[in-house]
Nucleic acid binder design. Structure first.
Lengths: 193, 193
DNA sequence: CGACACATGTAACACGTTACATGATTTG
DNA sequence: CAAATCATGTAACGTGTTACATGTGTCG
């Protein structure tokens, strides 16, 4: 649901054709998330289907131009105005994986944490290397890169935290898997708000 | 791609029927990500289609039990052994949104940052409140909660960082939108590795 | 000429998600 | 009894993603 919004936002700047849109998107995000061109066209179709963009004839060179509609503008405004979903946060694969690792007996949780930690640290190095260049020019990309860095750092911190807790749990003799047999359902509907 | 793996991992612990699986999943993740029961069954079908689980007759009470296959076990082992995708990191909607906000002229970036900051801080409070209870018992849920906290904290830090950079950029007169007209493609294929 | 970037699409599939239909069993 | 929970499924849709088909222009 973010490519859709992203492309739509770019179209608010100026009508564009498909290839141009892809270039604009990758330029802003610094090619952090490579975008298959085909997806631009499928997404444009869907946006047109939903009345958020419309075909606007052809370019001087014959490119099929797309233009944003009033409804589209409204949607973009709404997107920027509404904070990103901290109500039901996006499923975090790593968190799920660790949760399962400590739930299912016979999994070497420490090893999982270690492996992840190494990988994340390596990614962090890559990001830092990339940040060296490209700094002041592309503000957008620079911020995206920083986002990746902050995320990765938080992940490392969390992994360390996990290790500490696991060590403590192990020391206290709890065999990591003292789950009840018949799992009780719905002990926390509150999270759902 | 994480529910699939999660359910599969749970089945390695012990054969189960659908409803039980959902309970186990929500128990481990602390109902942080509520899981529609229907999805358990669709996912089970797909897992069976792929030969990772198989039907194992019926329970004493007539429940349709699913059992993990050797191939399934292999996949789980692989899942735990392979670090989560720090090669092409998952698309971060907030990062994309901010990138677009600074790219498209006429967007009040500061307002976007502010709104997000408020929302995230509020979420952080909720998490902290939840952490008060539930601590030592459910290790898994506790870790998931911590993950959310660490993530949210990193987000706030990043938002502050963004604000600072934006202020600096504004002070230096760059009108936030000094993007080149014709966007240059592929200036950074390196990220893709 | 041949390779390569530009450019536009389409078909197919994956996973996640919701809404709905249906029935058994429990419980106030 | 009525309402809620347990339990199993299916149908339909949405976005994201890849692979493919196809054609034009450009440049060494």
């Amino acid at each position: 649901m973010s490519i859709r919004q992203g492309l739509l936002a770019l179209l608010e700047q100026e009508p564009m054709y498909g290839y141009q849109l892809r270039a604009a998107f990758e330029s802003s995000t610094g090619a952090t998330w490579p975008l298959n061109v085909g997806q631009v066209y499928t997404t444009l179709s869907r946006l047109e289907r939903d009345g958020l963009v419309e075909s606007a004839g052809h370019d001087d060179e014959g490119h099929g131009i797309y233009r944003i509609t009033p409804a589209g503008r409204a949607e973009v405004a709404d997107w920027f105005a509404t904070p990103v979903g901290r109500g039901t946060p996006p499923r975090d694969e790593l968190a799920i994986k660790l949760a399962m690792a400590v739930t299912v007996p016979g999994v070497d949780v420490r090893a999982v944490v270690q492996a992840q930690r190494t990988a994340t640290l390596r990614a962090l190095q890559d990001y830092t290397r990339l940040k060296a260049r490209a700094t002041d020019s592309d503000l957008a990309w620079s911020l995206v890169l920083d986002s990746l860095v902050f995320d990765a750092e938080a992940e490392v911190r969390w992994l360390d935290h996990c290790e500490a807790r696991l060590a403590r749990a192990a020391r206290d003799g709890q065999s990591t898997g003292e789950q009840r047999q018949t799992v009780s359902v719905h002990q926390a509907d509150e999270v759902r708000r």
